[in-house]
Nucleic acid binder design. Structure first.
Ligand SMILES: [Zn+2]
Ligand SMILES: [Zn+2]
Ligand SMILES: [Zn+2]
Ligand SMILES: [Zn+2]
Lengths: 134, 134
DNA sequence: TGTTGACCCTGTACCGACTACAGGGTGCAG
DNA sequence: CTGCACCCTGTAGTCGGTACAGGGTCAACA
């Protein structure tokens, strides 16, 4: 038999989340408020655990919390087709690709600068002179 | 002859910065407070323009404002050698490399998920099922 | 039985790097 | 003289958490 309810600490540990973050998710309304014990402790059901796991996996994949909200809403429309989900995921993939190419451009520029430095004095440093207006 | 002083709007335009951001830089102490006109408008010197340009270029290269502060402080030590500058730049390059490889790993995972989706119903969507705990 | 200590509660402030107003003042051109 | 672009201060919001402070709860152990 599974334990029916979990404390916030257990939920946090099971999903590799900080306790404060779990409370934060409740505050912003992405994780529903659970029942309370007589001592006013939060008592989470298996449903909460599943939802928090979902949130965390999606966050680990880089979805924003708003996107996660959208994904969670879609997940409940079981018989609709998943085109919207896929579109969301593809959009996010495009975001990632954009970030990667931006970072690569940055990397090229910065490593070019570093390569030019001859390790002399500050006055001659190519890195600093590239940053200063001519 | 160059105009001796510039308004905040001119400075902002010349460095592709928002006016609010220029004031923000002053507030956090990275850009010194300029003189004021009789009407209490900020009046920036060429030195301010140079410093702001430096800040913006460094930011564009992805340095944090704290790193920019450090670079600016180093830039004033003209006769010291530039080892510290270069170390800072190399560290930042390593940060960028880490970000790129993190994003690539993410990209692989996400595009794998997207590839598995057969465009059926939500109930069968591989993207959602990969996010849900089994 | 009492006391320690781990856990939980609320509320608030903070991080980085801006951005966006609201509610006013200034300065110049027509 | 009036309209408009620009400037001023101060404050709050963004995103996704994180970090306390100042308390309450609960189980184990002496
Ligand atoms: Zn449990
Ligand atoms: Zn150098
Ligand atoms: Zn000017
Ligand atoms: Zn699908």
């Amino acid at each position: 038999m599974e334990k029916a309810y979990h404390s916030i600490g257990e939920l946090a540990e099971a999903t590799d989340t900080k306790v404060e973050t779990v409370r934060y998710y409740e505050r912003i309304g992405i994780l529903p408020a659970p029942k309370r014990t007589s001592g006013n402790y939060r008592a989470y059901s298996a449903g909460h655990l599943a939802r928090l796991s979902f949130i965390r996996r999606a966050r680990d994949l880089g979805f924003t919390l708003d996107q996660v909200r959208a994904l969670l809403a879609l997940a409940d429309q079981k018989k609709q087709d998943c085109g919207t989900v896929d579109a969301l995921a593809r959009e996010h993939l495009a975001d990632i690709d954009r970030k990667i190419s931006d970072l690569k451009a940055l990397r090229r520029e910065l490593s070019g600068l570093i390569g030019q430095c001859k390790q002399g004095t500050i006055a001659d440093c190519r890195i600093l002179s590239a940053l200063s207006p001519r």
